[in-house]
């Protein structure tokens, strides 16, 4: 039984694409058959973060419009066999996505994969609502920052009203993924704490991804952090989140980078 998961946030730049790639790779490494789907038509980036930008021939819209068959558009990851990418179109605009077409493609993907992970565009327009439309579960990516939390609240409202599940009177499963978290600044009262965000949004916590230079390094290299540096703090957090998605109950922790004594003293990462 496949699970369709939408990774969404409302606000841009909070880490949807990074998290889609990292969670997708983590689930695939745990033996699941995974496809990551880019819904950001016109501004595709998941291909770049996955390191597959030079292998894109056909895209989601070609499949929706019947110009290409689904297997022709799917790009299999070179590092992990059971991980595939369905890229977004870079040239056509969002109106090319039709509700019926998206439903058909999602249905076909359900038959082939265990996990269909939809990377939503920012905003609350057509692309975002279509990305969440057929989801069974949602990962709401949030930064510990006021505008991100407000937008997440808005998105949670949409998940509860505009998705196919919600319209049938069913509940969509929602998970909070707190990204770019800095436990030291939160402890100092400079950044919203995990408990603050959880209390405000009141959806269960999937994981806390600590702010880390490894995340930028991974996108620079086109390698999801869970593939490129699986022992780094953010990768460990993504692996744990993936296990929780699969139903395991784990205590949520904030994985920390290893620090030297001087690094600990001055709150910086030691130069290795």
């Amino acid at each position: 039984m496949a699970t369709v998961l939408v990774v969404t946030s409302g606000k841009g730049g909070v880490g949807k694409t990074t998290s889609t790639a990292a969670l997708g790779a983590a689930l695939a490494k745990q033996g699941q058959n995974v496809v990551v789907v880019d819904f950001d038509v016109g501004l595709r980036n998941l291909d770049l973060v996955m390191g597959a930008e030079r292998r894109v021939v056909f895209d989601l819209i070609n499949v929706v419009q019947g110009d290409a068959k689904l297997p022709q558009a799917l790009i299999r990851d070179k590092r992990i066999d059971n991980l595939s990418l369905l890229p977004a179109s870079q040239t056509r605009d969002k109106d090319a996505l039709t509700a019926d077409g998206v439903e058909r493609v999602i249905q076909q993907l359900r038959e082939r994969f265990d996990w269909v992970i939809c990377d939503s565009p920012a905003g609350i327009e057509r692309g975002a609502t279509l990305a969440m439309r057929h989801a069974d579960a949602a990962v709401v990516v949030t930064n510990p920052e006021v505008s991100s939390v407000r937008d997440s609240d808005r998105i949670i409202g949409l998940l509860d009203s505009k998705t196919a599940k919600a319209e049938k009177g069913e509940r969509i499963e929602k998970h909070l993924l707190l990204t770019r978290y800095d436990p030291i600044r939160a402890a100092r009262g400079e950044m919203l704490k995990t408990e603050d965000v959880l209390e405000i949004l009141s959806i269960p916590l999937l994981g806390i991804i600590p702010e880390s230079e490894e995340v930028l390094r991974s996108s620079n290299l086109g390698t999801p952090v869970t593939i490129g540096n699986p022992t780094s703090a953010p990768a460990r957090a993504y692996f744990e989140a993936a296990r929780r998605l699969r139903g395991e109950t784990l205590v949520v922790s904030v994985p920390a980078e290893r620090r030297s004594f001087m690094g600990r003293l001055f709150g910086r990462r030691a130069v290795a």
Partner: peptide, 10 residues
Amino acid sequence: GSAPVARDRL
């Protein structure tokens, strides 16, 4: 810290 202010405003 400014975080409590952020929480209350939100």
